[in-house]
Design a protein around this nucleic acid. Sequence first.
RNA 1: GGCGCGGUAGCUCAGCUGGUUAGAGCGCAGGAUUCAUAAUCCUGAGGUCGGCGGUUCGGGUCCGCCUCGCGCUACCA
Length: 708
Amino acid sequence: MSKKLVTSALPYANGALHLGHLAGAYLPADIYVRYLRLRGEDVVWVCGSDEHGAAITIRAKKEGITPQDIIEKYHALNKNTFEQFGISFDMYHRTSAEIHHETAREFFTKLYERGDQFIEKTNEQYYDAEYNQFLADRFIKGICPTCGYEEAYGDQCENCGSTLSPEELIEPVSTLSGNKPEKKETTHWYFDLKKHEKWLKEWIENGTLDGEPHHDPKAWKNHVVGQCKSWLDAEEGLLPRAITRDLDWGIKVPLPQADGKVLYVWFDAPIGYISATKAWAEQNGKNWEDYWKGDDAELIHFIGKDNIVFHCIIFPAMLKAYGDFKLPTNVPANQFLNFEGDKFSKSRGWGIEQHEYLEEFKDFPNKEDALRYALTRNMPENRDADFKWDEFVEFHDKELVGNLGNYLNRILVLTHKYFDGKVPASDVDLTEKYADILHLTASLAKRIELFDFKQAVNRLMEISSWGNTYLQDVSPWKIYKENPDSEEIAECMYVSLQVVTLLSALCAPFIPFTSEKIRNLLNLPALQNGDLNDILENLGAGKPLIDAGHSVNKPELLFAQINDRKDDSRKQIIERQKEKLVAILAQKAAEEAAKFKPVKPEISFEDFTKLDIRTGKITAAEPIKKADKLLKLTVDLGGQTRTVVSGIALQFKPEEVVGQQVAVLLNLAPRKMRGVLSEGMILMAENKEGKLSFVQSDEGFGEGLEVR
RNA sequence: GGCGCGGUAGCUCAGCUGGUUAGAGCGCAGGAUUCAUAAUCCUGAGGUCGGCGGUUCGGGUCCGCCUCGCGCUACCA
């Protein structure tokens, strides 16, 4: 039997996870793994906390605590929350563990010793002399060259969103000492991805590895293969990627000349899958290598779409460079889940985190499965999806309550009513009765195997729906009025109890808590690994899944309706969530209205007079090739005309701006853009929506006049 | 501009390697039923499958062009 190793993206131990994470990489993997276990497969599912990286140290410094405090907090929170949702990892490890440090160092050393995998580069980087430390991008703050924001980081300005490098910051400051950092030479190692480009292309596009078939590329999701191709087909190809950083939090680079350097977190994180497997194997008396290197080993990564390139290109390249490791047979990445029409955003409070949900819904019966179901039903498998509370309610009340829960309840009530809670005997031909549900069951299984969980869970409801329809068609309550001893009643209940038993097992991967409840109500033993095989076999052979004479327990409701006339407590929980969103929107609107951008640092009058701004008129305009946003403008300045390139093409068509009065900054250093030399800058005002408006003098006032 | 993903009923989405009258759930209209958590079941209305062209006996499904949405990327002095 093949050995399957399943991984889910390691959550960064710097914060809690929201519903989008759950729907992206953990819930689908849980469904898949639970299913495989029920089929008796040899499967191991590993995950864990990703606990390195500069973001954690920065946050620690800001909050006056240690990085260790942070990772302890979030490792515990995330691990615990996953457990509560029934996310059934075989191992939830952490990258701060010694076994991981060893594994990652060993991995690095092996590639280093191969000699041809890494490129060593020395360049100048900012250094904080007081702290005796090189500064990672995020340790440097300064003024954003684009928007003038004073708190921009060395990698990104959080005000305008532009991507920066530390060198671009104006007046850079170390966040450690607050001093101006100095430049100093430092050496780093880069992974030479270019060497792997050729076989990666083969592997991704054709599914062949070393000339042998490896996997069916058509079985991979379109967007996964597409994004990989987009990288592999890029003009410049795959660029070398830095594997080391100057930082004191992480895995020390195992080289004598690399004091004060750690492995870049992206390099050590995926190796976490390996060390987690080692830890699991140690605890369970297994050999981890069977799952990573064995001939019959299969590797499957569950991730969100932001991680595709790492798991389909970079990590496979690392594994191949190391040698012996099997590469993933599939990477069923999900897209993103939005929340009520917008992206999840912690800072804006938009969305709900997993542990928050558990807290807010603590009085909501079967809250774990209610959410698991809603997220599965609307999983972002092939495109972005949107989580809405109204949909949550609809799925819950219509499908879990009305279809599944109600069906079980009907069957249990009738079994007690007519047969004293015992499964009646019947000589009905089950093969014939099973025809439809056998087909649906096979389809459900197939869909899970294809990572199509949304369709799979639909099949589950279709089976329940088949049961409801069948019951309605026979209507034993009608027959009972005429002839209480009719064979037909026994037959109908006998068949229905088979269906309910089938549902108790088939629902387990999706809604495990409910599965357990149904098993209890049916007075059946808890499901064991491999049980689904027996069930499928009996189903195919027309044999009963629950025997005549077996006693079932008294009915109990599986799910309590949210829109309940007699009890609005659950509806109130939902309403509270919706109200929170309304409040956030209102607050946001208020803030926007009151916002006044901070004034830039004071300048002297002399500074101002350096600017030479004059009135002008656009006399010609044309688009620039291969540039979406740029227009080439010819501006009449009275005694002179100039060519100015302006980034306004998204909002203005060339013909619209001809004749436009403008103000032009004339003494700005000329600059070539997309092959056109720009000799000035058109002044524009920009509103909150990003809409542009020309700054201009009155029509006919004149060209070339100075603006002061 | 380049690359990728997507555009199917009012809404959310299925439609495998091209093949008979294009499907489901919700919503809507009508009806049946009472075992059941105002649950269930049946019937119906509703789609020029983003647009144009091509390959084919036949295209939602393949190819080309266009268009719209999203993502990455270049450009924004």
